[in-house]
Computed example of a mutant assay.
Amino acid sequence: MRDDLQDLVDEVSALLGAPATLEDRDFTLLAFCAHDGTGPATPGATMDAVRARSILGRSSTPEVRAWFESHGIARATAPLRVPADPAAGILTRLCLPVRAGGRLHGYLWLLDEERTDVTDPGAPGLAEAVALAAEAGRLLAEGRPGTADLSAALRTALTDPAPAPGRAVRTLTEALGAGTPVALVALLPAGPGLPPGWTPPGAGAVTAVLDDGAVAVLLPLPGHGDHRPAGALSGAALGGLPPGSTAGVAAARHGCGELTGQWHEARTAARVAAADPRLAPAASWAELGAWRAVAALPGPDPVLAPLLADPVLTETAATWLDCAGSPQRAAGELCIHRQTLYYRLGRIEQLTGLDLADGADRLLLHLGVRAARLAGIGWVPQPPRPLGGLVSMPS
């Protein structure tokens, strides 16, 4: 394909009598032609700092990109003129948008010294050059990202520092469509690795496996805020994973510009689903409630360390607090006599030095035992609820 693109650039350069450069939509150089200088071009006037950098470094600076995009090149569907910026060393140039199927794939640039009138459809060589730009778009579209490329883009967008996610996000946006409502699902398999042959359900879903074994699934949604497809996908995906695996669903967004925030939400929801039997095996960010604040903590307060060494007392404290301090309800939940509960509460005070009659101490204890539960410290996991309740997950 690269040879075909070079031939196209050479032909456009000859048609319009000017040096030509082909870049993708990220301003990465794909091909260029140094015009032979015959014709009306002024010697030495057809090279500027931008073209030199593009050829030598195969890229442009963010400032240069911002200058060109501020003149509407990303939205253009016809040839347009980008004015010069003498202070930045930018000469005026002709831009031919490279499109296919309504999608932008790149730009053909010509340093033509304003000889071509973009307002005149009959300008010599212009119509032919536009047709060649369309052919370049077709060639680039045929090389559009496949499934593996999209998985790599999703992985990059979630794990790599800037500026890598910018290009990855644009790749995903092109594939899914700008402004498409998307949900991000986090799957936390129980145990290392995925079952052989496992694939997530869901039409159009993009999947990436991260280094720690977590699985991210990016899913286009039919309507903003409707999590039902994501909930259904979570249930079906968990059905193929080992028991004890959990899933989390982030709040829906328009487009792929907030994937990092969505991944935090989805992964937090999946972690909470593993910690709270009432939410297992799948939870959405919207239903986490106080768990959101707990997930933001670095861990339980050190004063609780003696308590957390005793799983029975830790579970007693968590249950009593979740029951709003009701001895009757807590004893019933724990299947113990009320006097046994009182004895355990006294032991909790002795171990921690907290006064359970004090609201601030109870808050510290409640946050601490929940943070410990989220980290899997000092508690005994309970069986998850059946998978059948996943589809109607609240949005």
Rank of each mutant, 00 (worst) to 15 (best):
A141R: 08
A141I: 01
E128W: 00
A162Y: 09
A131M: 08
T173L: 02
L126F: 11
V130T: 15
E135R: 14
L188I: 07
V185E: 11
A178H: 13
P163E: 11
A157K: 01
T171C: 06
A129M: 05
G146F: 14
G137K: 00
V185N: 13
G179M: 02
R167I: 12
L150R: 14
T171G: 14
E142M: 02
A162K: 03
T156Q: 10
D149W: 03
A153M: 07
E135K: 07
G143Y: 08
A157T: 08
L132V: 01
A164M: 04
A190C: 12
T171N: 05
A178N: 04
A148W: 11
P161C: 12
A131G: 15
D149H: 10
L176Q: 01
R138N: 15
P161S: 10
A141V: 00
A186M: 14
G179P: 08
G179I: 07
E174D: 12
P189E: 12
T173F: 03
G177W: 10
P189K: 07
E174K: 01
L158E: 05
L176I: 11
T173V: 04
A186Y: 12
A190P: 00
R167E: 08
L176Y: 03
A168G: 08
A129E: 13
P165H: 10
T180V: 11
L140P: 06
E174I: 01
P181W: 09
T180M: 04
G137S: 03
L154A: 05
A148Q: 15
G166M: 02
P189D: 13
G143P: 00
A168V: 08
S151E: 13
T147K: 15
A153T: 07
A148R: 15
R138H: 15
G179L: 03
L176D: 09
E142S: 15
T156S: 13
P161Y: 10
T156F: 08
L172A: 04
V130P: 04
A157I: 07
A164S: 10
L188V: 02
L139C: 02
T156I: 13
T180Q: 14
R167P: 01
E142Y: 04
R138V: 09
P189C: 03
P161I: 07
P161E: 12
E142G: 06
L139R: 14
A178E: 15
A153E: 10
P181A: 14
A175D: 04
A183S: 15
A162H: 06
P165C: 01
S151R: 03
P181I: 14
G166S: 06
L132C: 04
A134S: 11
R155L: 12
G179A: 12
L187V: 08
A162F: 09
A175K: 00
G137V: 13
A164D: 09
L184W: 11
L187G: 06
L126Q: 05
L172H: 08
L158N: 04
L126C: 09
T156C: 09
A168W: 11
L172F: 06
V130I: 13
A129R: 10
V185T: 13
T156M: 07
L139S: 11
T159A: 10
T147C: 09
P145I: 04
A190L: 00
P161Q: 11
T156R: 09
L184Y: 09
G146Y: 13
A127N: 03
G143W: 02
A183T: 00
A190Q: 05
G143D: 15
L139N: 04
R144A: 15
E135I: 00
R167F: 07
E135W: 11
P161G: 05
P145F: 12
L187M: 07
R167Q: 04
A133H: 06
T173K: 02
